[in-house]
Amino acid sequence: MMAYMNPGPHYSVNALALSGPSVDLMHQAVPYPSAPRKQRRERTTFTRSQLEELEALFAKTQYPDVYAREEVALKINLPESRVQVWFKNRRAKCRQQRQQQKQQQQPPGGQAKARPAKRKAGTSPRPSTDVCPDPLGISDSYSPPLPGPSGSPTTAVATVSIWSPASESPLPEAQRAGLVASGPSLTSAPYAMTYAPASAFCSSPSAYGSPSSYFSGLDPYLSPMVPQLGGPALSPLSGPSVGPSLAQSPTSLSGQSYGAYSPVDSLEFKDPTGTWKFTYNPMDPLDYKDQSAWKFQIL
């Protein structure tokens, strides 16, 4: 009977010793046993002879290597770790002494450095960015050149030099007046198309007034536009458009034309069986010896 009264063996659950049927240790109110408190290391007290050895090595170098620390530790009968900690504390003490010396050398008012006064946003004049500046400075420094007289040679050079070769001289006033084509001369031969040399188009003023001019072949195509416009036809070669000034309004060009419109200028042929003959000019830059190549039959 006494065997049943004795408590059973101890069981360990999660490293906790349980005594038989008792489960009081598993209750929430019972805390787990805490780790033992780490003991504080005792402070090391250095003797005068030990301090002399350490100070002598510190005077040589503030960062001794492990071999120098072990050698000193053997002399003063201390572990190497204590020597390492002593050098660490000695360097910190040396830095603190240097900072105190710097503070003593500075004057009393030198510690508080005078800061520059901050400028207020409204006091300083700042350039306004509302208006974009002129990058080319046209509004201040540029002045347009004065327009020359209508009959000045410089204007003629600016007008005619675009179309004339570089080897030719500017046309005088008398020749510029001949550039304007007359109405009857352009409409006299509506079906004849003559190819003149390129030099005649640039230099010869008579080429624009003769039936064999460069633009005589364009007349049949330009004249039928007159009834559609409801007024006189516009002429690209009329009046002052080739003269001194090219800047004319469309209203000033509306009254200039080749001449009176005639039914002869239409595109319809009077004789459907007729042929169109292209007159060959020996001055043509295209060297075609066979003139029969310039004739064709309209079917």
Rank of each mutant, 00 (worst) to 15 (best):
M2E: 00
Y4Q: 00
N6S: 09
P9S: 02
V13D: 00
N14F: 14
N14C: 15
A15Q: 01
A17N: 01
S22K: 08
Q28M: 14
A29P: 07
Y32W: 08
P33R: 09
P36E: 03
K38Q: 15
Q39E: 08
R41Y: 15
T45D: 14
S49Q: 09
Q50E: 12
Q50L: 15
E52N: 05
L54K: 13
A56K: 04
L57R: 12
L57A: 05
F58T: 13
A59E: 07
K60T: 10
Y63S: 15
Y67Q: 03
Y67R: 07
A68V: 04
R69C: 12
E70W: 10
E70N: 08
E70A: 12
L74C: 05
I76P: 10
N77D: 10
P79E: 03
P79N: 06
S81H: 06
V85S: 13
K88G: 13
C94L: 06
R95S: 10
Q96C: 05
Q97I: 04
Q97R: 10
Q101H: 08
K102A: 06
Q106D: 03
P107Y: 03
P107F: 03
P108E: 02
P108D: 05
G109Y: 03
Q111R: 09
P116I: 03
K118W: 01
K120A: 01
A121C: 03
G122A: 03
T123F: 01
T123M: 02
P125I: 10
T129E: 03
V131P: 12
P133N: 04
P135E: 09
S139V: 04
D140L: 12
P144C: 02
P149A: 06
G151W: 13
T154K: 11
T155M: 10
V157Y: 09
V157T: 02
T159K: 08
S161W: 14
W163N: 00
S164K: 06
S164D: 00
P165S: 07
E168K: 11
L171K: 06
L179S: 01
P184F: 13
S185P: 02
L186I: 03
L186P: 01
L186W: 09
A189P: 04
A192I: 11
Y195D: 00
A198T: 06
S199V: 12
S199K: 10
A200W: 15
A207M: 11
G209H: 10
S210W: 15
P211T: 06
P211M: 07
F215K: 05
F215E: 00
F215N: 00
L218S: 00
D219Y: 14
P220Y: 15
L222M: 08
P227K: 09
G230I: 13
L237R: 02
V242T: 06
G243E: 02
G243W: 12
P244L: 12
Q248R: 10
P250L: 13
T251Q: 06
L253S: 02
S254C: 11
G255C: 09
G255T: 03
Q256K: 12
S257R: 11
Y258K: 03
A260L: 13
A260M: 09
S262Y: 15
D271G: 14
T275M: 04
K277H: 07
F278M: 00
Y280R: 06
Y280Q: 00
L286T: 04
L286C: 03
S292L: 15
W294A: 00
W294C: 00
F296D: 00
L299A: 00
